[in-house]
Design a protein around this nucleic acid. Structure first.
Length: 571
RNA sequence: GCCUCUCUAGCUCAAUGGUAGAGCAGUGGACUUUUAAUCCAUUGGUUCUGGGUUCGAGCCCCAGGGGAGGCACCA
């Protein structure tokens, strides 16, 4: 809560009472010493914002804004050039500016062109051309080359990079000195004209430069960037500043999600938001995070899936809904798992698993086209065209081929256990044949699936919310999408028979009581919803993080999550 | 949770158990078409932390911490 009384103290009258500054009347408190002339022309000032010219003004945090203390440049801290000394040096520059009434953190800058727009408009200019075309651009200083009476600086905004051609003869001695004092990492706003150098480098020749924000901390290595993965993930801001790859990965993630929304909109899906705090765990097989609401005095779970809520909406007649849902699972962290991750789940009334498989292909293929400009991606050195129809193959067929034994959930449990033992697959006592078949599939086949593939027909035992296969009572109409050995999606014909659903829940409940920490609980409200009648429905979930990994070619989920879950920093 | 690897200047990296170095960044200087600008000079260290072995430890040993990869679990 800001109040004027404890905010920076200044008054407009004070500003007005000062004679106009030399350089255009907007610099109220110019110092007359040569030292302070350094910044004399570099700043474009906003009225009122920089009027704290009096001695020892203190802001609401108690920091001195302007003081008569000795310049930090003379303090002990600056005797070296470690991080502390470097920060002290730059803070000293700030003090110096403020003593002149200049604000190193002005409130705004009006730009006319992004750097990509500059490049798009003037990119074809011949070498050595000077135009009269005026632009205002802004960006962070990434490189700086100081050459006598010229300074070349490369600035970057979100769209790209452009060089500044700063000429002493154009900007004048004072502004040129100020430009020389700029540091890598500083944000700059520039008014100037477009030109090309003799070698053809597209440049903006500034007539006026404005420091938009002073960097106090030095940038990572301008050439090598930031390589330490720990630092890259903890200080994502630094990673994004210096690593093109990081920026690209999150661009791809964004384009993927944006593409999903467009595709779903064309199919008449409605985006909804359902609770993150769930009183019951359901919709997937996973261990939840638990939390507590104080006023209600109620334990709650962070959602592990949104399935049961979205299907309630299908009962309610919303027909086509989806949610891009942050989801939480209290399980291991790996290159493929983050405790919080994003799933897109959709439900489509009157459809079954066939419609949902079709839309899976469309969503992912379109996302690739939108994010990468191509549907051809590289997977394990293999060129894969997502636009080619994805093969469909039953899980029991994979497992049978993998083991050399004809497997089916109807086979006696003892036989299934023997096959598992032959393949070094650990089996829990409570597992039935269906679960053992899934384990055998994962052991023998999962990692060998490279191109996108629908693995279908999961046993009923491991699919408590999926409808039984219309042709085989032991299997369900379910599929999982595998690419590069990883599951990225899961869908099925939704079970809508409330009586059968209750029986399935009761089996899960029994498993939970038998010690399965990941089993869901019986959700009476969901059953009540089904009792009102849910139309035939197809449902789908796609792991957005994993899809982003696939499209970005990232080998770790942390590369596509801006702030992955990490232990707190040491000390 | 287990196994392996890793941690040195702000960043990227060196350094047989024997005085901790380089490049970048920074500082001072030269340079009006550079572009990882270049050239000259130069500052900067709790070698992750704590013990131990040794005349001597960045290096060897033990314990702890962070991270990565693999396994397990899951998506």
């Amino acid at each position: 809560m800001r109040s004027t009384s404890d905010h920076i103290t200044f008054d407009h009258g004070h500003l007005r009472s000062h004679p106009s500054g030399v350089g255009g009347g907007d610099i109220p408190c110019r110092s007359t010493t040569d030292d302070h002339e350094t910044f004399g022309h570099v700043l474009r000032l906003e009225v009122g914002a920089e009027s704290m010219c009096g001695p020892s003004l203190v802001n609401r945090y108690g920091h001195s804004i302007v003081s008569d203390e000795p310049d930090p440049a003379e303090s002990d801290e600056l005797s070296g050039s470690g991080l502390a000394a470097e920060k002290a040096r730059r803070l000293g520059l700030l003090d110096e500016m403020r003593q002149q009434g200049l604000n190193p953190y002005p409130y705004r800058f009006d730009r006319t062109h992004t750097l990509a727009e500059v490049r798009r408009t003037w990119g074809e200019l011949e070498p050595g051309v000077e135009t009269d075309d005026a632009v205002s651009v802004a960006g962070r200083i990434m490189l700086k080359r100081d050459s006598g009476k010229l300074v070349f600086a490369t600035i970057r905004d979100r769209s790209g990079e452009v060089q500044l051609f700063i000429s002493k003869a154009v900007v004048g001695d004072d502004a040129f000195a100020a430009a020389k004092a700029l540091d890598l990492g500083d944000w700059l706003g520039v008014d100037g004209t477009v030109m090309t150098t003799r070698k053809g480098e597209l440049s903006v020749k500034p007539s006026e430069l404005a420091l938009l924000s002073k960097a106090i901390r030095p940038m990572p290595d301008k050439w090598h960037g930031l390589a330490d993965v720990d630092t890259r993930f903890r200080q994502r801001y630094a990673d994004l500043i210096v690593n093109e790859e990081a920026r690209r990965n999150f661009e791809i993630r964004h384009e993927t999600i944006a593409s999903f929304r467009r595709t779903l909109a064309t199919h008449g899906f409605i985006e909804v938001e359902t609770p993150v705090l769930h009183p019951e765990v359901g919709g997937a097989h996973a261990r939840p995070f638990t939390t507590h609401h104080n006023t209600l005095d109620m334990d709650l779970y962070l959602r592990i899936a949104v399935e049961l809520y979205l299907k309630r909406l299908i009962v309610g007649g919303m027909e086509r809904v989806y949610e891009i849902a942050r989801t939480f699972r209290n399980e291991g962290v790996s290159t493929r798992h983050n405790p919080e991750f994003t799933m897109m789940e959709l439900y489509q009334a009157f459809g079954d698993w066939n419609e949902v498989m079709d839309i899976s292909e469309e969503l992912i293929t379109t996302a690739a086209r939108d994010a990468l400009g191509t549907t051809v991606i590289e997977v394990r050195g293999e060129s894969v065209d997502l636009a080619e129809s994805w093969p469909r193959k039953r899980m029991i067929d994979y497992a049978s081929e993998g083991t050399g034994v004809e497997l089916h959930p109807s086979m006696p449990l003892l036989d299934a256990r023997r096959v598992a033992a032959d393949h070094d697959v650990f089996v829990e006592d409570r597992w039935g044949t269906g679960k053992i078949i899934e384990e055998l599939f994962e052991k023998t086949s999962e990692s060998s699936i490279v191109r996108p593939t629908f693995v279908t027909g999961h046993p009923v035992e491991i699919s408590p919310l999926a409808r039984v296969d219309r042709n085989d009572p032991y299997l369900t109409e379910r599929f999982e999408i595998f690419v590069d050995g990883r599951e990225i999606g899961n869908g099925y014909s939704e079970l809508n028979d409330p009586v059968e659903q209750r029986l399935r829940f009761e089996e899960e409940q029994a498993a939970k009581e038998a010690g399965d920490a990941e089993a869901g609980s019986l959700d009476e409200d969901y059953l009540r919803a089904l009792e009102y009648g849910m139309p035939p429905t197809g449902g789908l979930g796609i792991g957005i993080d994993r899809l982003a990994m696939l499209l970005a070619g990232a080998d770790s989920i942390k590369e596509v999550i801006l702030f992955p879950t990490l232990r707190p920093e040491a000390n």
